[in-house]
Structures are given as C-alpha cells and as structure tokens.
C-alpha cells in the first residue's frame, strides 16, 4: 500500500465516522418516518457516487479508445467494479427502507426500475471483462460497452419514467419535493463527501492491484 493510498484511506475513514455521527447524532429524528429515514444518509450518497463511478467509466473508456493507454483501461475497470458495489448498497438499503415505509421490499417504481437496469448493464460489463482472456482485447471491447452503457442510462431513465408514470400516476411512492431542513442537508453532504473519498480509496487500491496483476502475468 502506497503512502498516498493510506492517507486517502484514513481521510475516508474519518469522513465516514463524521458522517455516522452526523446521521445518528446531529441530524434530528424525521417527524413522519422516524429513525428509518436515517438510512437515507447511506442510500443517497451510494447512488450519487455510483453515477460518478459510471461517469468515470465513460470518460476512461473514451480516453482508452483514443490513445490506448493501459492506465485508462484499469481506471475504467476499477471504477465499474466500485460503481456496481455502490449501486448494490443503494438497492439493498432502499429495500430495507421500503419494507417499513411502503410495506414492500420491492416495487416496479420508475426509480427502482431504472437503477436496477443500470445495475444489470454494468454487471454484464464486468462479465464481458471476465470472459475475455486476451487483456488488450478485453480492454477494447469493455471500452466500447462502457460508452454504450453510459449513453444508455438517460434512455433507460426516460423510458422507464414514462412507462411507469403514464400508467400509474403519483401514489404514495412519489413524495413531493418538500425542502429539507439544514441539519438533514448537512448530514447528507458530510456523508456524500465521505463516500466520494471512499470511492477514491477503493478505486486507487483496485487500480494498483490490476496493475500488479498485469505485471505478474506479463
């Protein structure tokens, strides 16, 4: 582990601790949902960081196809893996929150559906990488899929939104956009920053491992 990674890891750890304190200590108990609402401090940063991760996959894929720099490929690979992990955290915490709040673990609501489709697309992306032995070919194909997948996200978002909302207009699943009070927002932001740092730490670690793996195999 390089010293830079170690520093990043400690800072991320401190951020998560601060986020934990904010979420359970500082932020007040939400009036209608009670303590269950606190899962939001994990749920929302996870998906925002997942979107960041898949954005990084897109940029790194374009850079790879442009100049064929092996580093860009490793970054795309690592970022996709971490993005999938954060998406699954988002889906799992959402289900845990949904059971007491909506009375069901899962429903084919627009947001749930589009996030789960995105999850499956990037799982397929990792599967493609795993199934191609030739490293250079895997990098090229994954870069193409990384671009298609990222451009597909807005299409999925709109199609699923129209699909659900035209059939089933706003029910209890669609809370109004009531503004949040400052302590809630602050706790959310602290957790978001901590998650971005955690993402950076994971990606840095995975990129180094992938590089060492390739050096050993080379």
């Amino acid at each position: 582990m390089t010293s830079r990674e170690r520093v990043l890891g400690w800072v991320a750890g401190l951020g998560l601790t601060a986020g934990f304190v904010m979420a359970f200590g500082v932020a007040p108990r939400e009036a209608t949902q009670g303590n269950v609402q606190r899962i939001m401090y994990l749920h929302v940063p996870a998906i925002l960081v997942a979107y960041l991760a898949f954005g990084v996959v897109l940029v790194a894929s374009v850079i790879y196809l442009w100049g064929r720099a092996a580093g860009a490929d490793r970054l795309a690979h690592a970022s996709a893996e971490v993005g999938v992990v954060f998406t699954s955290i988002n889906i799992a915490t959402g289900a845990i929150w949904g059971k007491p709040t909506w009375g069901t673990w899962w429903t084919w609501d627009a947001r749930l559906t589009s996030v789960s489709i995105m999850f499956v697309i990037y799982l397929a992306y990792l599967l493609l990488r795993a199934m191609i032995e030739d490293r250079e070919r895997a990098a090229r194909f994954a870069a193409v899929l990384g671009i298609v997948a990222a451009l597909d996200i807005p299409l999925v978002h709109f199609s699923v939104y129209w699909w659900r909302t035209l059939h089933q207009p706003a029910t209890l699943l669609r809370p109004g956009s009531t503004p949040m009070d400052p302590p809630f927002v602050l706790a959310l932001i602290v957790n978001l920053v901590a998650f971005v740092l955690l993402y950076g730490y994971f990606v840095a670690k995975r990129v180094r491992l992938l590089r060492q793996e390739q050096e050993v195999l080379a």
Partner: peptide, 22 residues
C-alpha cells in the same frame, strides 16, 4: 464483440437484453 468470445451464446443475450430495455 462476442464473435470471438468463448461463451458467446450466453454473453450475447446477456449484453444485449439489458441495454435494449428503452
């Protein structure tokens, strides 16, 4: 893409089906 992959019969639908949802 999948023409040269070993498990192409499986991989092709696995790649295509989620992407074509819209």
């Amino acid at each position: 893409m999948t023409a040269h992959v070993r498990a192409r019969e499986v991989l092709f639908p696995v790649l295509l089906l989620p992407v074509q949802v819209p």
